[in-house]
Nucleic acid binder design. Sequence first.
DNA 1: GACACTAGTAATCGACTGATAACATGTCAA
DNA 2: TTGACATGTTATCAGTCGATTACTAGTGTC
Lengths: 204, 204
Amino acid sequence: MKATEPAGTRRRMAVEDRRALVLDAAMRAFARGGYAGTSTDAVAREAGVSQPYVVRMFGTKLALFLDVFDLACTRIREVFERVIDEGPFDPEAEEDWTRLASAYGELVRDRDLLTVMMHGWAAGDVAEIAALGRTNMGRIFTTIMRTGCTPDQAEGFIAQGMLLNVMLSMRAPEHLDETPELAPLADCTFGDALSFLVAEADAG
Amino acid sequence: MKATEPAGTRRRMAVEDRRALVLDAAMRAFARGGYAGTSTDAVAREAGVSQPYVVRMFGTKLALFLDVFDLACTRIREVFERVIDEGPFDPEAEEDWTRLASAYGELVRDRDLLTVMMHGWAAGDVAEIAALGRTNMGRIFTTIMRTGCTPDQAEGFIAQGMLLNVMLSMRAPEHLDETPELAPLADCTFGDALSFLVAEADAG
DNA sequence: GACACTAGTAATCGACTGATAACATGTCAA
DNA sequence: TTGACATGTTATCAGTCGATTACTAGTGTC
């Protein structure tokens, strides 16, 4: 997972390119440990740069996390927007909701995105993180409402997403055999995506 | 919130009583900062004892968190069990689900329980925490299934709970005026309990 | 080719963390 | 009363943390 540098050619980069690279590494690092549980040094190692450079580039660890959290939320919202914009959406048609859900399911392949979101939403004790979480949750809700559905339908859809995040965060797909009680819940939560997740877990 | 000791009479306690007291304090402390973000010293201060005593009582910080996390999950499951056992449950009757949901809603008054659960579920990077989370999630699912409902119904109910946790964790009820986009989502999520939550936020 | 500028590192700091060890004090049985 | 034990504390430590400072090395330009 570590950023593999083109060994030997440890050249300088344009600052915006390096920034994007560090942001990406920070996404992976924070996905593992969350805000409090991830050191700037861990991010630096993941990015292949020095720890002071990470700090100076973003000012503080908090500023870096806020950037990562915001990026994660934005990417997810953009996925929803793309699906909604690509054609008419009938809120009463099951298949349209499935289309939206499976778009979310695709994001599961890059689990870091969802895990970072999860950590951001759990970190309500840091005022700035909580505020950013509220803003982004509001935006996502508004985006879903653009399907023309009722607030209750949008809420139900988001709730499903939250459970999916939780199940993913606790590594449910990888450990279904150890916790048979959880299997039917995982079936409902992940649907068709489950077999893929389990296969990926076996491979990894 | 701090444990108010009967000042002056700083007497000794039976170890099991003290243990319960520290566990309670740890619930409050971990609810604020999560596992990684809460020091054993913070727990000790909350409990009104010394930091080394907290560590020695539970062995390690991780063991303490696991105890707290397990306690939180167990209490919530017990609430569900009580409601389900107190009479017949018709999975097709809206009012029975409302009964179950409002039992969960009552737990909202002690927000620490739900916040600790949230942190435990987000802390999937610590293998022991993730495993305990899976076990408890499985138990809760099994408990809900005792209503005689379908797996999908149980999954939907739990999903609603997860969104409720997230909304609570990000302090949505206290900040609805700052994030108007979020208001309709909060309406759906909290239902009748919302007015109480907002009132409590104003009071606190 | 040297100057100005930008991308990056090494060294280091004070604060904090979880844990251990040594010590103190209250309580009860004989 | 005294001794044994359980309940606590103070002192301390090695490791880690985020951040600052001072330094080094590319890079484009005149």
